[in-house]
C-alpha cells in the first residue's frame, strides 16, 4: 500500500491545526492503515450520493439553457441548443420584469431582516451571558421556549393581529416578524459566555469605555463567528419562509421570489411558457444563496458547531 503521500515535513509546524491535518490525511506513523476495501466502499458511497445531491441541480442548469421545445424532446441531462441568454432575457422581461422585483424583495426581507435580527439577538445574548440582573433566567428560559415554537405556528396568529390593525399585505407584515430570532439569542449567549473574558470588559471599564461602547468596539469582534452564523441561519430562514408571505401578501409586487415562482408554477397549465420560466427563475433564485454560502464559508463552519456545545 503506497497511498499515504503526506511528506514527513508536515510534522514540523507546531500548530495544533497541522497535527489535526496529519491525522486526517492519515500519516503512516499514526496507526494501522485502512484496507483498500474500506477505502473503496467509502469512496463509492460518497460518489453515489454526490450524484443524488447534484443531479437535480445539474438538471436545472441544463434545462434552463434549452428552448421550450427542446425541454421535453432532448436528453434532459445534457445540453442541446444552448440559449440561456434568450431564456434569461425572456424571464426577466416577463410581466414587466417582476422577477427582478421579487428577487429584490427577497433580498430586502432576508438581508435586512437577518441583519437586524443579528444585531438584536447579539445584544440580548451578550447581556444574558455577561451581566447579572433580575429576571435573567426567566427571560432566557422564555427565549429558549421560543426556539421550540416554530415560526410557521405563528404565521396565522400574526396574520390575525396584522389584520386587526389593517397592516396585512404590506412589506412590514413580512419584515417585522422576521427580525426576531430566539435561536440567535441562544447561540450568542453561549458563544459570548465562552469567548468574551470578564477581564477584558473590566479593562475597558477602567479605560473609561461605557458598556454599550465596549460591546460594539470590543466584544462584537470576539463574537464575530457566532454573529455570522446567526446572520446566515436567519437569512436562510427568511429566504425560505413560505407560510408567512403566503398568508400575508396579496399584492404580487410585494412577493418574495419563492412565493412568486410558486404562483407561476400553479398556473403552468394555463400559461405553458411559464414552465420554462419557472425553471430559469428557480436557477436564478438559488444562485444568491450559493454565493453567500461560499463567501461566508470560513465563518459559518466555525460557528455551526457552537449550538451543540452545551
Amino acid at each position: 500500500m503506497s497511498t499515504p503521500v503526506v511528506p514527513p515535513t508536515i510534522t514540523a509546524p507546531p500548530s495544533a491545526r497541522a497535527a489535526t491535518r496529519a491525522r486526517r490525511t492519515g500519516t503512516p506513523a499514526s496507526g494501522p492503515r485502512e484496507s483498500i476495501l474500506s477505502r473503496t466502499s467509502a469512496m463509492l458511497i460518497m460518489a453515489v450520493f454526490t450524484l443524488y445531491f447534484l443531479t437535480p441541480i445539474w438538471w436545472l442548469l441544463v434545462a434552463s439553457t434549452k428552448s421550450r421545445g427542446d425541454l421535453t424532446t432532448t436528453n434532459a441531462l445534457w445540453f442541446s441548443d444552448i440559449q440561456l441568454g434568450e431564456n434569461l432575457a425572456a424571464v426577466f422581461g416577463y410581466q414587466g420584469g417582476i422577477l427582478v422585483k421579487w428577487l429584490g424583495n427577497s433580498l430586502a426581507y432576508a438581508g435586512g431582516g437577518a441583519l437586524l435580527a443579528t444585531l438584536l439577538a447579539g445584544m440580548c445574548g451578550y447581556a444574558l451571558a455577561k451581566y447579572r440582573f433580575p429576571g435573567r433566567e426567566v427571560l432566557f428560559n422564555v427565549v429558549l421556549g421560543g426556539v421550540l415554537v416554530p415560526a410557521t405556528a405563528l404565521a396565522l396568529p400574526l396574520f390575525l393581529i396584522f389584520s386587526e390593525v389593517g397592516a396585512t399585505n404590506t412589506f412590514w407584515s413580512v419584515f417585522l416578524p422576521s427580525i426576531v430570532s430566539p435561536f440567535g439569542v441562544y447561540l450568542t449567549r453561549i458563544f459570548a459566555a465562552a469567548s468574551v473574558p470578564d477581564e477584558l470588559m473590566e479593562a475597558a471599564r477602567l479605560d473609561g469605555s461605557g458598556e454599550v461602547r465596549t460591546y460594539f468596539t470590543v466584544s462584537v469582534r470576539l463574537m464575530f463567528p457566532a454573529l455570522v452564523t446567526v446572520f446566515l441561519f436567519q437569512f436562510v430562514a427568511i429566504w425560505n419562509n413560505f407560510f408567512l408571505p403566503l398568508i400575508m401578501l396579496r399584492d404580487s409586487a410585494l412577493f418574495p421570489v419563492t412565493l412568486g415562482l410558486y404562483n407561476w408554477n400553479s398556473v403552468v397549465n394555463q400559461v405553458p411558457e411559464l414552465r420554462l420560466y419557472v425553471l430559469v427563475g428557480a436557477l436564478v433564485s438559488i444562485l444568491p444563496l450559493i454565493a453567500l454560502f461560499l463567501l461566508l464559508q470560513r465563518f459559518w463552519r466555525s460557528g455551526l458547531g457552537t449550538g451543540a456545545i452545551k
Binding site: 438559488i286 444563496l289 450559493i290
Partner: peptide
C-alpha cells in the same frame, strides 16, 4: 449545496 435551494423551489 441542496440546502441553498428553498423548500418551495
Amino acid at each position: 449545496a441542496p440546502y441553498a435551494v428553498p423548500g418551495v423551489i
